[in-house]
Structures are given as C-alpha cells and as structure tokens.
Amino acid sequence: MRHRFLIGLLVIMILMLMSFLAAYRANEHVRGYIGPGKIQLESGRLSYIPFHSPGWALLNISCNGRGSLLLKDQLSGRNLLDIPVEPHVSRVVVIPHEGTYSLYTNGSMFCSGYISELYPTSRTQGVLWVSVGVLSVLLAFLLWRWWS
C-alpha cells in the first residue's frame, strides 16, 4: 500500500474525533462545584463568581440572601436568569453551550452549586460528525485508489 503514513494520519484523525465523543460520555455525570461564595453589590462594586462550562450542562444553584440572582453569558452578553431571592432559592438552570458565565446579584447573598449532566451542544456534535464523515469518505476514496 502506498502513502501508508497519510492513510494512518486519516485513521488517527477519525479515531481521535470518536474519542472526543467518548470523553463527553465519560464526563457526563461528573460534578463541578461552584462556590460557596458571597456575591453582592456594595457601593457600586460587584462581587461575582465566574465559571467555565465545557458544554451543555445543568447548573444546580442554591442561594440565601436578599436581591435578584442573575446569570450572565459573558460571551454573548445575554442574561440567562433573573429570579428574586427572598430569602432562599434553589433552582436548576440550563447552561446552553460552552463558554464563560457569571453569577452576580443586585443585593447580597451566599451561593453554592454544582454543574453536571454535561453533553456536547448540537453545533459541537455537528462539527464532530461532519468531520468524521468527510474524513471517512476521503479515507475510503484513498484506500480505493491506493490499494495495491
């Protein structure tokens, strides 16, 4: 067979992309903890908790205090959450995609929580599966042409 290294490279890339999907499955129920921390608005200054989510996930958050609990998607600038805390709230929030998020408030409260149920977003899945498809077709074509 000619160009064994190139064929090997294509097989490596296909297996690599499949292994990424397996990595999502392995991390599906792993919990990442947030806080506990005191978030507050004090004389114009905010204390907030930023965190990174590696995909679609569920955020279980529990807060005690006074004010509105806000969650901001720092990459799109959207606010995902605005709920009053009087004096306790416990909520499950969907984290729509990977990126940086911040928990903040216009009052003062203690918050803690965890993220779990990690899944690839449909866009990430699309990129992975389309790449696997294109590479597989390329591999099949090259094997057909170069097999001897």
Binding site: G37, Y48, I49
Partner: peptide, 11 residues
C-alpha cells in the same frame, strides 16, 4: 471536559 468548577470570586 472535567473542568466545570468555579471557585474564584472576582470583585
């Protein structure tokens, strides 16, 4: 993908 922890507090 194991990350998912936010223990920092920013002022």
């Amino acid at each position: 993908l194991h990350s998912m922890a936010g223990l920092a507090l920013i002022h």
